[in-house]
Design a protein around this nucleic acid. Structure first.
Lengths: 206, 206
DNA sequence: CTGTGTGAAGGCTTTCACAGCC
DNA sequence: GGCTGTGAAAGCCTTCACACAG
Protein backbone atom coordinates (compact mmCIF):
# COMPACT_ATOMS: atom_id res chain seq x y z
CA UNK A 1 0.00 0.00 0.00
CA UNK A 2 1.44 3.37 -0.98
CA UNK A 3 1.72 5.06 2.38
CA UNK A 4 1.46 8.58 1.03
CA UNK A 5 0.99 11.47 3.35
CA UNK A 6 -2.62 12.03 4.23
CA UNK A 7 -3.21 15.01 6.56
CA UNK A 8 -4.30 14.02 10.04
CA UNK A 9 -7.52 15.95 9.77
CA UNK A 10 -8.33 14.27 6.51
CA UNK A 11 -7.87 10.84 8.05
CA UNK A 12 -10.32 11.83 10.74
CA UNK A 13 -12.89 12.90 8.17
CA UNK A 14 -12.45 9.69 6.20
CA UNK A 15 -14.03 7.96 9.18
CA UNK A 16 -16.95 10.35 8.99
CA UNK A 17 -17.40 9.61 5.31
CA UNK A 18 -17.26 5.91 5.96
CA UNK A 19 -20.02 6.20 8.56
CA UNK A 20 -22.18 8.26 6.28
CA UNK A 21 -21.70 5.71 3.50
CA UNK A 22 -22.81 2.85 5.72
CA UNK A 23 -26.04 4.67 6.41
CA UNK A 24 -26.70 4.85 2.67
CA UNK A 25 -26.08 1.19 1.87
CA UNK A 26 -29.34 -0.20 3.30
CA UNK A 27 -31.28 2.15 1.03
CA UNK A 28 -29.81 0.29 -1.95
CA UNK A 29 -28.32 3.51 -3.26
CA UNK A 30 -25.51 2.63 -5.63
CA UNK A 31 -24.15 6.04 -6.37
CA UNK A 32 -23.74 9.18 -4.33
CA UNK A 33 -22.56 12.67 -5.26
CA UNK A 34 -19.92 14.51 -3.29
CA UNK A 35 -22.56 17.08 -2.38
CA UNK A 36 -24.91 14.51 -0.90
CA UNK A 37 -22.25 12.58 0.97
CA UNK A 38 -20.64 15.76 2.26
CA UNK A 39 -23.94 16.93 3.65
CA UNK A 40 -24.48 13.62 5.42
CA UNK A 41 -21.00 13.86 6.93
CA UNK A 42 -21.38 17.51 7.86
CA UNK A 43 -18.59 18.93 5.69
CA UNK A 44 -18.30 20.93 2.46
CA UNK A 45 -18.46 19.10 -0.86
CA UNK A 46 -15.17 20.51 -2.12
CA UNK A 47 -13.45 19.36 1.00
CA UNK A 48 -14.70 15.84 0.57
CA UNK A 49 -13.45 15.71 -3.00
CA UNK A 50 -10.08 17.11 -2.00
CA UNK A 51 -9.82 14.58 0.81
CA UNK A 52 -10.48 11.69 -1.54
CA UNK A 53 -7.88 12.81 -4.07
CA UNK A 54 -5.15 12.12 -1.50
CA UNK A 55 -5.39 8.45 -2.37
CA UNK A 56 -6.80 8.27 -5.87
CA UNK A 57 -9.80 8.89 -8.09
CA UNK A 58 -13.02 7.00 -7.63
CA UNK A 59 -15.73 9.26 -8.89
CA UNK A 60 -17.41 9.23 -12.25
CA UNK A 61 -17.82 12.75 -13.56
CA UNK A 62 -21.40 13.68 -14.02
CA UNK A 63 -22.51 10.81 -11.82
CA UNK A 64 -20.82 10.59 -8.44
CA UNK A 65 -19.17 7.85 -6.40
CA UNK A 66 -20.00 4.17 -6.32
CA UNK A 67 -21.03 3.51 -2.74
CA UNK A 68 -19.57 0.02 -2.45
CA UNK A 69 -16.29 0.80 -4.15
CA UNK A 70 -15.66 3.93 -2.12
CA UNK A 71 -16.64 2.15 1.04
CA UNK A 72 -14.16 -0.65 0.37
CA UNK A 73 -11.39 1.79 -0.41
CA UNK A 74 -11.96 3.73 2.80
CA UNK A 75 -11.84 0.55 4.83
CA UNK A 76 -8.53 -0.30 3.18
CA UNK A 77 -7.01 3.13 3.73
CA UNK A 78 -8.15 3.35 7.33
CA UNK A 79 -6.68 -0.05 8.12
CA UNK A 80 -9.91 -1.47 9.46
CA UNK A 81 -10.02 -4.30 6.98
CA UNK A 82 -9.26 -6.80 9.70
CA UNK A 83 -10.55 -6.88 13.23
CA UNK A 84 -8.10 -5.10 15.50
CA UNK A 85 -7.61 -6.61 18.94
CA UNK A 86 -7.60 -3.96 21.68
CA UNK A 87 -7.06 -4.11 25.42
CA UNK A 88 -8.57 -1.84 28.04
CA UNK A 89 -6.60 -0.87 31.10
CA UNK A 90 -8.47 0.37 34.18
CA UNK A 91 -11.98 -1.04 34.58
CA UNK A 92 -13.34 1.68 36.88
CA UNK A 93 -16.49 3.64 36.11
CA UNK A 94 -15.50 4.87 32.72
CA UNK A 95 -13.63 1.71 31.77
CA UNK A 96 -16.55 -0.53 32.68
CA UNK A 97 -18.90 1.60 30.65
CA UNK A 98 -16.67 1.42 27.63
CA UNK A 99 -16.54 -2.36 27.93
CA UNK A 100 -20.32 -2.41 27.68
CA UNK A 101 -20.34 0.14 24.87
CA UNK A 102 -21.45 -1.61 21.67
CA UNK A 103 -19.89 1.00 19.41
CA UNK A 104 -16.42 -0.54 19.34
CA UNK A 105 -17.34 -4.02 18.16
CA UNK A 106 -19.67 -2.49 15.59
CA UNK A 107 -16.75 -0.63 14.06
CA UNK A 108 -14.40 -3.59 13.91
CA UNK A 109 -12.57 -3.46 17.22
CA UNK A 110 -12.63 -6.27 19.70
CA UNK A 111 -11.69 -5.68 23.31
CA UNK A 112 -9.90 -8.97 23.97
CA UNK A 113 -9.10 -8.34 27.63
CA UNK A 114 -9.34 -5.76 30.39
CA UNK A 115 -6.85 -5.13 33.16
CA UNK A 116 -7.65 -3.91 36.65
CA UNK A 117 -6.33 -4.10 40.18
CA UNK A 118 -9.50 -5.90 41.12
CA UNK A 119 -9.72 -8.86 38.75
CA UNK A 120 -12.52 -11.06 40.06
CA UNK A 121 -14.67 -13.71 38.42
CA UNK A 122 -17.79 -11.78 39.31
CA UNK A 123 -16.65 -8.71 37.47
CA UNK A 124 -15.67 -10.86 34.53
CA UNK A 125 -19.22 -12.15 34.32
CA UNK A 126 -20.69 -8.67 34.77
CA UNK A 127 -18.61 -7.14 32.06
CA UNK A 128 -18.52 -10.05 29.65
CA UNK A 129 -14.80 -9.88 29.03
CA UNK A 130 -11.70 -11.49 30.46
CA UNK A 131 -10.32 -9.43 33.35
CA UNK A 132 -6.70 -9.84 34.34
CA UNK A 133 -4.63 -8.26 37.10
CA UNK A 134 -2.51 -5.25 36.18
CA UNK A 135 0.65 -7.25 36.73
CA UNK A 136 -0.08 -9.36 33.65
CA UNK A 137 -0.20 -6.49 31.17
CA UNK A 138 3.29 -6.80 29.72
CA UNK A 139 3.14 -10.54 29.39
CA UNK A 140 -0.26 -10.48 27.69
CA UNK A 141 0.60 -7.68 25.27
CA UNK A 142 3.72 -9.50 24.14
CA UNK A 143 2.07 -12.90 23.86
CA UNK A 144 -0.93 -11.63 21.91
CA UNK A 145 0.96 -8.99 19.94
CA UNK A 146 -1.48 -6.29 21.03
CA UNK A 147 -0.93 -2.95 19.34
CA UNK A 148 -3.79 -0.83 20.64
CA UNK A 149 -4.88 0.03 24.17
CA UNK A 150 -7.65 2.07 25.76
CA UNK A 151 -6.39 3.75 28.93
CA UNK A 152 -8.97 4.53 31.62
CA UNK A 153 -6.85 4.57 34.76
CA UNK A 154 -6.58 7.47 37.24
CA UNK A 155 -4.28 10.30 36.17
CA UNK A 156 -1.66 9.61 38.82
CA UNK A 157 -0.80 6.16 37.44
CA UNK A 158 -1.44 6.87 33.77
CA UNK A 159 2.16 7.61 32.82
CA UNK A 160 3.46 4.59 34.67
CA UNK A 161 0.98 2.26 32.98
CA UNK A 162 1.75 3.88 29.65
CA UNK A 163 5.44 3.15 30.04
CA UNK A 164 4.61 -0.47 30.66
CA UNK A 165 2.35 -0.67 27.62
CA UNK A 166 4.93 0.96 25.38
CA UNK A 167 7.72 -1.26 26.65
CA UNK A 168 5.62 -4.31 25.84
CA UNK A 169 5.02 -3.14 22.28
CA UNK A 170 1.77 -1.15 22.22
CA UNK A 171 1.81 1.42 19.39
CA UNK A 172 -1.44 3.30 19.83
CA UNK A 173 -3.22 4.51 22.96
CA UNK A 174 -6.65 6.03 23.37
CA UNK A 175 -6.13 7.99 26.59
CA UNK A 176 -8.93 9.16 28.89
CA UNK A 177 -6.71 10.28 31.77
CA UNK A 178 -6.52 14.07 32.01
CA UNK A 179 -2.77 14.37 31.50
CA UNK A 180 -0.39 14.59 28.55
CA UNK A 181 1.31 11.25 28.15
CA UNK A 182 4.99 11.20 27.24
CA UNK A 183 5.67 8.55 24.61
CA UNK A 184 8.34 7.78 22.00
CA UNK A 185 7.73 9.10 18.48
CA UNK A 186 6.67 5.74 17.11
CA UNK A 187 3.70 5.61 19.49
CA UNK A 188 0.48 7.51 18.74
CA UNK A 189 -1.78 8.85 21.47
CA UNK A 190 -5.29 10.24 21.06
CA UNK A 191 -6.50 11.90 24.22
CA UNK A 192 -10.11 12.42 25.16
CA UNK A 193 -10.49 14.73 28.12
CA UNK A 194 -14.13 15.05 29.04
CA UNK A 195 -13.71 17.88 31.51
CA UNK A 196 -11.80 19.94 28.96
CA UNK A 197 -14.52 19.42 26.40
CA UNK A 198 -17.05 20.86 28.84
CA UNK A 199 -14.77 23.71 29.81
CA UNK A 200 -14.33 24.49 26.16
CA UNK A 201 -18.07 24.67 25.63
CA UNK A 202 -18.57 26.96 28.58
CA UNK A 203 -16.26 29.50 27.00
CA UNK A 204 -18.35 29.75 23.87
CA UNK A 205 -21.72 30.33 25.50
CA UNK A 206 -21.00 33.65 27.15
CA UNK B 1 -15.15 41.44 29.92
CA UNK B 2 -13.50 42.19 26.59
CA UNK B 3 -14.81 39.43 24.36
CA UNK B 4 -12.00 39.55 21.84
CA UNK B 5 -11.52 36.77 19.37
CA UNK B 6 -9.51 33.91 20.74
CA UNK B 7 -8.92 31.07 18.26
CA UNK B 8 -10.80 27.90 19.08
CA UNK B 9 -7.64 25.88 19.35
CA UNK B 10 -6.13 28.38 21.72
CA UNK B 11 -9.15 28.18 24.01
CA UNK B 12 -8.70 24.44 24.12
CA UNK B 13 -5.07 24.79 25.11
CA UNK B 14 -5.91 27.33 27.79
CA UNK B 15 -7.62 24.47 29.61
CA UNK B 16 -4.43 22.44 29.33
CA UNK B 17 -2.41 25.29 30.79
CA UNK B 18 -4.87 25.67 33.61
CA UNK B 19 -4.55 22.00 34.51
CA UNK B 20 -0.80 22.12 34.41
CA UNK B 21 -0.85 25.17 36.67
CA UNK B 22 -3.02 23.42 39.24
CA UNK B 23 -0.45 20.66 39.47
CA UNK B 24 2.21 23.23 40.30
CA UNK B 25 0.29 25.04 43.04
CA UNK B 26 0.72 22.39 45.77
CA UNK B 27 4.47 22.57 45.32
CA UNK B 28 4.33 26.18 46.51
CA UNK B 29 5.93 27.34 43.28
CA UNK B 30 5.11 30.99 42.81
CA UNK B 31 6.54 31.60 39.39
CA UNK B 32 6.81 29.51 36.27
CA UNK B 33 8.50 30.14 32.94
CA UNK B 34 6.74 29.63 29.63
CA UNK B 35 9.23 26.87 28.86
CA UNK B 36 8.44 24.94 32.04
CA UNK B 37 4.68 25.37 31.79
CA UNK B 38 4.66 24.53 28.11
CA UNK B 39 6.49 21.30 28.77
CA UNK B 40 4.00 20.34 31.47
CA UNK B 41 1.14 21.01 29.10
CA UNK B 42 2.79 19.26 26.17
CA UNK B 43 3.14 22.23 23.82
CA UNK B 44 5.90 24.52 22.55
CA UNK B 45 6.94 27.51 24.68
CA UNK B 46 6.40 30.05 21.90
CA UNK B 47 2.93 28.77 21.34
CA UNK B 48 2.05 29.17 24.99
CA UNK B 49 3.28 32.76 24.99
CA UNK B 50 1.38 33.54 21.81
CA UNK B 51 -1.76 32.00 23.26
CA UNK B 52 -1.55 34.14 26.37
CA UNK B 53 -1.09 37.38 24.43
CA UNK B 54 -4.63 37.03 23.04
CA UNK B 55 -5.94 38.38 26.31
CA UNK B 56 -3.18 40.45 27.84
CA UNK B 57 0.27 40.38 29.38
CA UNK B 58 0.97 38.60 32.63
CA UNK B 59 4.56 37.61 32.48
CA UNK B 60 7.53 39.35 34.02
CA UNK B 61 10.42 39.40 31.60
CA UNK B 62 13.38 37.60 32.93
CA UNK B 63 11.25 35.83 35.50
CA UNK B 64 8.16 34.12 34.17
CA UNK B 65 4.49 34.01 35.13
CA UNK B 66 2.97 34.28 38.59
CA UNK B 67 1.17 31.00 39.11
CA UNK B 68 -1.78 32.35 41.08
CA UNK B 69 -2.37 35.39 38.91
CA UNK B 70 -2.25 33.44 35.67
CA UNK B 71 -4.45 30.75 37.15
CA UNK B 72 -7.07 33.30 38.14
CA UNK B 73 -7.00 34.95 34.73
CA UNK B 74 -7.46 31.64 32.95
CA UNK B 75 -10.45 30.81 35.12
CA UNK B 76 -11.97 34.16 34.22
CA UNK B 77 -11.33 33.83 30.50
CA UNK B 78 -12.62 30.26 30.35
CA UNK B 79 -15.83 31.23 32.12
CA UNK B 80 -15.47 28.64 34.83
CA UNK B 81 -15.50 31.15 37.64
CA UNK B 82 -18.96 30.05 38.68
CA UNK B 83 -20.33 26.55 38.82
CA UNK B 84 -22.12 25.73 35.58
CA UNK B 85 -25.24 23.60 35.85
CA UNK B 86 -25.35 20.84 33.25
CA UNK B 87 -27.92 18.19 32.38
CA UNK B 88 -27.25 14.74 30.97
CA UNK B 89 -29.64 13.18 28.50
CA UNK B 90 -29.64 9.41 28.05
CA UNK B 91 -28.57 7.44 31.11
CA UNK B 92 -27.54 4.25 29.30
CA UNK B 93 -24.15 2.63 29.72
CA UNK B 94 -22.07 5.61 28.78
CA UNK B 95 -24.41 8.13 30.39
CA UNK B 96 -24.45 6.26 33.69
CA UNK B 97 -20.69 6.08 33.73
CA UNK B 98 -20.38 9.78 33.14
CA UNK B 99 -22.75 10.47 36.03
CA UNK B 100 -20.41 8.56 38.30
CA UNK B 101 -17.36 10.20 36.78
CA UNK B 102 -15.82 12.52 39.39
CA UNK B 103 -13.97 14.63 36.83
CA UNK B 104 -16.86 16.97 36.06
CA UNK B 105 -17.56 18.19 39.58
CA UNK B 106 -13.86 18.58 40.16
CA UNK B 107 -13.67 21.02 37.27
CA UNK B 108 -16.62 23.13 38.30
CA UNK B 109 -19.55 21.49 36.55
CA UNK B 110 -22.54 20.10 38.38
CA UNK B 111 -24.85 17.61 36.69
CA UNK B 112 -28.14 18.84 38.16
CA UNK B 113 -30.36 16.25 36.52
CA UNK B 114 -30.36 13.33 34.11
CA UNK B 115 -33.08 12.38 31.66
CA UNK B 116 -33.95 8.89 30.51
CA UNK B 117 -36.87 6.87 29.25
CA UNK B 118 -36.58 4.74 32.34
CA UNK B 119 -36.74 7.19 35.26
CA UNK B 120 -37.08 5.07 38.39
CA UNK B 121 -36.35 5.77 42.04
CA UNK B 122 -33.95 2.85 42.15
CA UNK B 123 -31.81 4.28 39.38
CA UNK B 124 -31.90 7.64 41.06
CA UNK B 125 -30.39 6.09 44.18
CA UNK B 126 -27.84 4.12 42.18
CA UNK B 127 -26.63 7.10 40.25
CA UNK B 128 -26.95 9.73 42.95
CA UNK B 129 -28.67 12.29 40.78
CA UNK B 130 -32.25 13.26 40.01
CA UNK B 131 -33.56 11.27 37.04
CA UNK B 132 -36.51 12.60 35.11
CA UNK B 133 -38.44 11.21 32.15
CA UNK B 134 -37.46 12.45 28.70
CA UNK B 135 -40.78 14.24 28.34
CA UNK B 136 -39.77 16.75 31.00
CA UNK B 137 -36.65 18.02 29.25
CA UNK B 138 -38.05 21.19 27.74
CA UNK B 139 -39.87 22.20 30.88
CA UNK B 140 -36.83 21.65 33.10
CA UNK B 141 -34.37 23.42 30.82
CA UNK B 142 -36.61 26.48 30.65
CA UNK B 143 -37.37 26.56 34.37
CA UNK B 144 -33.74 26.13 35.46
CA UNK B 145 -32.24 28.17 32.61
CA UNK B 146 -29.92 25.31 31.68
CA UNK B 147 -27.40 26.21 29.02
CA UNK B 148 -25.25 23.08 28.75
CA UNK B 149 -26.16 19.46 28.04
CA UNK B 150 -24.29 16.18 27.73
CA UNK B 151 -25.91 13.98 25.10
CA UNK B 152 -25.51 10.22 25.47
CA UNK B 153 -28.56 8.90 23.66
CA UNK B 154 -28.52 6.41 20.74
CA UNK B 155 -27.66 7.93 17.37
CA UNK B 156 -31.13 7.42 15.92
CA UNK B 157 -32.79 9.79 18.39
CA UNK B 158 -29.88 12.20 18.89
CA UNK B 159 -31.05 14.81 16.39
CA UNK B 160 -34.59 14.75 17.70
CA UNK B 161 -33.45 15.23 21.29
CA UNK B 162 -31.07 17.96 20.18
CA UNK B 163 -33.89 19.87 18.55
CA UNK B 164 -35.81 19.74 21.80
CA UNK B 165 -32.82 20.93 23.81
CA UNK B 166 -32.13 23.79 21.42
CA UNK B 167 -35.78 24.84 21.33
CA UNK B 168 -35.78 25.01 25.13
CA UNK B 169 -32.71 27.24 25.20
CA UNK B 170 -29.64 25.01 25.50
CA UNK B 171 -26.59 26.71 23.94
CA UNK B 172 -23.86 24.10 24.26
CA UNK B 173 -23.93 20.34 23.74
CA UNK B 174 -21.29 17.74 24.44
CA UNK B 175 -22.32 15.02 22.01
CA UNK B 176 -21.35 11.35 22.26
CA UNK B 177 -23.70 10.05 19.59
CA UNK B 178 -21.83 9.09 16.41
CA UNK B 179 -23.59 11.53 14.11
CA UNK B 180 -23.18 15.16 13.07
CA UNK B 181 -25.83 17.20 14.84
CA UNK B 182 -27.52 20.00 12.92
CA UNK B 183 -27.89 23.08 15.11
CA UNK B 184 -28.39 26.84 14.64
CA UNK B 185 -25.27 29.01 14.58
CA UNK B 186 -25.73 30.28 18.12
CA UNK B 187 -25.42 26.74 19.51
CA UNK B 188 -22.00 25.09 19.99
CA UNK B 189 -21.48 21.34 19.73
CA UNK B 190 -18.40 19.39 20.72
CA UNK B 191 -18.55 15.82 19.53
CA UNK B 192 -16.65 12.93 21.02
CA UNK B 193 -16.85 9.83 18.87
CA UNK B 194 -15.03 6.99 20.55
CA UNK B 195 -15.12 4.60 17.63
CA UNK B 196 -13.65 7.25 15.32
CA UNK B 197 -10.83 7.90 17.76
CA UNK B 198 -9.93 4.22 17.64
CA UNK B 199 -10.24 4.07 13.88
CA UNK B 200 -7.99 7.07 13.66
CA UNK B 201 -5.34 5.37 15.76
CA UNK B 202 -5.46 2.22 13.69
CA UNK B 203 -4.51 4.24 10.63
CA UNK B 204 -1.35 5.53 12.20
CA UNK B 205 0.06 2.22 13.39
CA UNK B 206 0.57 0.60 10.02
C1' DC C 1 -25.62 19.63 -18.28
C1' DT C 2 -24.12 17.32 -14.12
C1' DG C 3 -20.60 16.48 -11.04
C1' DT C 4 -15.53 15.20 -10.35
C1' DG C 5 -10.52 16.51 -10.08
C1' DT C 6 -7.23 20.06 -9.10
C1' DG C 7 -4.07 24.18 -9.38
C1' DA C 8 -4.32 28.52 -7.25
C1' DA C 9 -5.91 31.66 -3.78
C1' DG C 10 -7.16 32.55 0.70
C1' DG C 11 -7.29 31.92 5.67
C1' DC C 12 -5.84 30.23 9.83
C1' DT C 13 -2.06 28.45 13.11
C1' DT C 14 2.36 27.68 14.32
C1' DT C 15 7.06 28.82 14.45
C1' DC C 16 10.84 31.99 14.05
C1' DA C 17 13.62 35.81 15.23
C1' DC C 18 14.52 39.31 17.89
C1' DA C 19 13.35 43.68 20.39
C1' DG C 20 12.35 44.97 25.02
C1' DC C 21 12.17 44.66 29.97
C1' DC C 22 13.59 42.84 34.61
C1' DG D 1 21.63 36.87 31.33
C1' DG D 2 17.03 35.28 31.40
C1' DC D 3 12.62 35.30 29.68
C1' DT D 4 8.48 37.63 27.80
C1' DG D 5 5.90 39.87 23.90
C1' DT D 6 5.21 40.20 19.06
C1' DG D 7 5.62 41.31 13.99
C1' DA D 8 6.94 38.61 10.18
C1' DA D 9 7.60 34.19 7.88
C1' DA D 10 6.39 29.63 7.14
C1' DG D 11 3.38 25.88 7.07
C1' DC D 12 -0.94 23.72 6.81
C1' DC D 13 -5.71 23.37 5.57
C1' DT D 14 -9.79 24.97 3.35
C1' DT D 15 -12.21 27.15 -0.29
C1' DC D 16 -12.57 28.85 -4.92
C1' DA D 17 -12.80 28.62 -9.81
C1' DC D 18 -12.85 26.18 -13.55
C1' DA D 19 -11.12 22.54 -16.84
C1' DC D 20 -12.68 18.23 -18.09
C1' DA D 21 -15.17 13.75 -18.42
C1' DG D 22 -19.51 11.13 -18.91
Amino acid sequence: MPKLVIPRKTVYRLSLYYRALQRLKPNSIETVSSAALAKAAGVKATQLRKDLTYFGQFGTRGLGYNVNALSAKLTEVLGTTHLQPVILVGAGNLGSALLRYPGFAKEGFEVVAAFDLEATKKRERDLGVRILPMTKIGEFVKAEQIKMAILTVPAVVAQEVTNELVAAGVLAILNFAPIMLQVPDRVVVNSVDLAIELENLSYFIR
